[in-house]
Amino acid sequence: MRYGTLTSMALSLTMVTGCTPATERLGGDAAPAGSPRASASTAAPSASSVAATGSPRPSGSASRTAGPTASATRTSGSSGSSGQSSAIRQTDWPNATITNLRFCGQSDDTVRFRDGSNGFDVPCTILPGGARPVYAEFVVEEPANAPSTEDALVLVELGNPGAARRQALVPVQLSDNGRGLYAWPVIAGDAPAAGGAQVMTFTSYRVVGQTVEATVRRTDGGSETRRWRKADGAGNWERF
C-alpha cells in the first residue's frame, strides 16, 4: 500500500478494478464491545469469539462514554500472507499516533492518542466504550500487484460524554515505512440533535469485500443498517 498524489490514487483505483479480483479482498474481525483493550495480544480473536452487534501519513485504554458501544464481525477470508499483513494488528490503539485524522478537529492533522484520548478540552477518543477494530484488506492498493496487506477500521468519537458528541468510522492503513498509521476519509455519523442530548452511535460495524456495513442507533432512538462504498480514488465514501 503506497500512496502519492490524489492523481496517483485515482490511477491506483483503476488498476485495482482492472487487475485485482474481488475475491482477493479479505474480511475483518474484532471482538465484542466490553472486551479487553485492543493491544497486540487481543487484536485478532477467533471467528467463534465475535458477536454481531488525502496527505502525508506517518501509534488510548478506550474511554467509556454514554450510549451504545460498537462491536464488529468477521466477514470472510483470513489475513494476507505477507509479513506486513499482520503488522497493523500489533497496534496499541489507545496510544496510537494517526496522521490525516482531520475528524478530530485539530490544527495539526496528526492525532496522538494517550490512554484513548487526544487530551483536548473537547476530546477525541479512539474505540470508545470498549469498541474494537475490524481488520480487513479493503482500502485501495498501489501498485495493484503489491503484496496484500491488512487495513483497520476503528471507531472514533469527538466530544465529551453527556454533551454533544459525534462518532465516525475511520479506515486506517500502515504508512510507507510500515510503522506509522495513516487515516483515509472517515465515515461520519449523523450530527447530534439540537442541544446535543441525542447522539447517533455505531452499535456494530464490519467490512464486506470493499464495502462497510454498520448498525446504527439514530438520534431518534431507532436502529437501522447502513452501507457505504468508495465514491472515488481519494477514498471518500458514499452511502448506498
Rank of each mutant, 00 (worst) to 15 (best):
V172H: 03
A33S: 06
S35W: 15
R206E: 12
I88G: 01
A33E: 09
Q210H: 11
E137T: 13
A146C: 03
A22P: 05
L11H: 13
N100H: 06
G130T: 06
V170P: 07
R112D: 09
G4T: 08
G130Q: 01
A52D: 05
P171W: 14
V170Y: 02
A96K: 00
T219V: 15
G180R: 02
S35E: 03
G130P: 08
N177I: 08
R227P: 04
Q173L: 05
E141L: 09
R179F: 09
A214N: 05
S46L: 06
Q106T: 10
A164T: 08
A62M: 13
T97H: 04
P32E: 06
D176C: 10
R89P: 10
G209R: 12
A231S: 09
G222E: 02
E142R: 14
T23I: 07
P128C: 07
E137I: 11
G159C: 01
A146H: 07
V170H: 02
A234R: 13
R112T: 14
G235P: 08
R166Q: 06
A33Y: 13
S81C: 13
N160D: 00
M9G: 07
L101V: 07
R179E: 05
R2Q: 12
D151F: 11
P192A: 07
R114N: 02
P21T: 01
T42D: 05
T215Q: 09
A231E: 00
S48E: 06
M9C: 03
R74P: 15
R218V: 08
Q90L: 11
G189M: 09
G54H: 13
G67D: 03
N95R: 03
T7W: 11
C124G: 04
N100R: 00
G28V: 06
A10G: 08
G27V: 14
D92Y: 12
S175V: 10
P58N: 11
E141R: 08
W93K: 04
S117P: 15
A44Y: 12
G77D: 08
R206N: 01
A38H: 03
G195M: 01
P21K: 03
G235K: 01
P21Q: 03
L101R: 05
A30F: 15
T69H: 13
S107K: 09
V139C: 09
P94L: 03
M15C: 04
R25P: 14
A164R: 04
G116E: 05
R239G: 06
V122A: 01
S48P: 13
A31L: 06
A193M: 03
V207I: 10
G233K: 01
V216K: 09
S61F: 13
Q90I: 01
A87H: 15
L101N: 01
V207A: 00
E224S: 07
S46M: 05
N177P: 08
